[in-house]
Simulated scan of single mutants.
Amino acid sequence: MTTLRLTIGIDPGISGAIAVLADGEAGPIIDMPLLGEDREVDARQVAMFIRAARDLHPGASVSAVIERVRAMPPKDGERRAGAQSSFNFGDHYGKAKAVLELLGIPYTRAEPASWKRQFGLTGQPKDASRVLAIQRFPTVAAELKRKKDNGRADALLIALYGEQRLASGVAA
């Protein structure tokens, strides 16, 4: 059977991941590839993963959804990410976007609050997305069995969010 649509979901954080949905079903998933001691996103590996997924489904329409990240300055005495970690997070986001642009893959950005609200994850523990992804995509449950696999779960749900928004005629 020919795949008509590939949707790539990207959670761009250092503990993030990249997931592919093929006609709404979970495909390959990888943890965000990182380079060396600096633990920077390995844009080359990201591109190779996306190309390989695309090559498995020739002729499929390909799009991506990337979680939009922003600096989180402190408010009301609350501790947030420091300047360096915010810069690094933005760098990872930029590298993922650049890979999509270079590969000619159209993408939309998903606000964390929006995609989490759509799936009832607002205010839930971080592990709730992993539990939901296992329920929605039981074929990849083995790839989501550890608590630290929440980045993989987020990437799957970000892709699903994009697909659902597209199906309803609303941009992600």
Rank of each mutant, 00 (worst) to 15 (best):
A113T: 10
V69R: 00
Y107E: 04
G82E: 05
I66A: 01
A110S: 12
Y93S: 03
I105T: 10
E101L: 09
E78S: 14
G77K: 14
S85L: 08
L100S: 04
R109C: 06
E78F: 12
T108A: 09
A96C: 15
G82Y: 09
E78H: 13
G82S: 12
S63W: 11
D91R: 13
R68D: 01
V99E: 11
R80Q: 07
H92S: 10
P74T: 12
T108V: 07
Y107D: 01
K75R: 13
L100E: 04
R80C: 05
Q84V: 15
T108S: 08
S114V: 07
F87G: 00
Y93E: 05
A83K: 09
V69P: 00
N88Q: 13
R109G: 08
I105G: 08
A81K: 07
G82Q: 05
V62Y: 14
Q84C: 07
S85E: 04
Q84N: 13
I66E: 01
G104C: 03
R70I: 01
S61Q: 13
K75V: 14
D76N: 14
P112M: 03
G90V: 02
P74V: 07
L100P: 02
K95D: 05
T108F: 02
R109E: 15
A98F: 08
R68T: 03
P112A: 15
N88V: 11
F87R: 04
D91L: 12
A81V: 02
I105V: 15
P106R: 15
F89R: 09
H92T: 04
A98Y: 09
A83L: 09
T108R: 07
R68Q: 10
R80V: 07
A64R: 08
T108W: 04
S85R: 10
V65C: 14
E67R: 02
R80H: 07
L103F: 05
T108C: 05
R68C: 00
K97L: 13
L102D: 14
S114A: 11
R79H: 14
P112N: 06
L103N: 10
S86P: 00
D76W: 06
S85P: 03
A96H: 00
R68P: 00
M72P: 03
D76E: 13
A110H: 03
E111G: 04
P73L: 04
D76Q: 09
E111L: 12
K95R: 14
A83I: 12
P106I: 04
Q84I: 13
P74N: 11
P112D: 05
R79A: 15
A64C: 11
D91P: 00
E67K: 02
V99Q: 13
D91F: 06
R109Y: 00
G82R: 06
K97D: 00
A98R: 11
P106M: 06
D91N: 11
L103V: 08
I66L: 07
A96T: 06
A98K: 06
S114R: 09
L103G: 08
R70M: 05
A98L: 15
K95C: 03
S63V: 10
S86A: 10
V99A: 11
R79Q: 15
F87M: 07
S85I: 12
E78C: 09
S61N: 10
A81N: 10
V62G: 13
E78Q: 15
D76G: 09
P74D: 08
V62S: 11
A64W: 07
A98P: 01
A110I: 07
G82C: 04
S114P: 01
S85F: 05
P73W: 04
A113N: 08
I66K: 01
F87E: 02
R109S: 08
